[in-house]
Amino acid sequence: MNSNSPKSYPNRLGLKGWVYAGRYTFERYLYLGHRLSGMGLIAYMVLHIIETANRMRGVEAWQGLMALFASPPFKVVEYLLFAAAVFHAMNGVRLLLTELGFFLGKPKEPVYPYSSSVMRHRPLTYVIMALAGLIIILGGSSLFFP
């Protein structure tokens, strides 16, 4: 490609590519969920450190804050954060194991129809997601069934 050739069209997908780039399997959406929950959690963690520092303003400030967090909109946000944390932790366990090469099988000659490490660790993915769903539902039991 010399500099006299006509300009190519830059075909990079950009940020949209994190969300949807084609008809891929659901591990790609687990990646997106892990990324979104992670961003939510780090934002919450920083806010949490700052808001719990209100203790230094005295008893009344602290009690006012706790009363605010006991109100319904905050309870919903708290539950969503709990769900995000459980999803992130459980998917994180799957990533911790698989990104170090465990549960992916052994390399072998590819014979059609090809299997892939992603498909081979599907059973682990299902178990982990089922556990995550169970913990999220049980953890919200006090919210749904007070």
Binding site: L15, R35, G38, M39, L41, I42, M45, I49
Partner: peptide
């Protein structure tokens, strides 16, 4: 917990921003 959480979270955030 503060050190571990901050390191883990900010390493992830650094990865996300630097992928742009």
């Amino acid at each position: 917990l503060l050190a571990a959480g901050l390191y883990h979270g900010l390493y992830g955030l650094r990865g996300i921003i630097r992928e742009l």
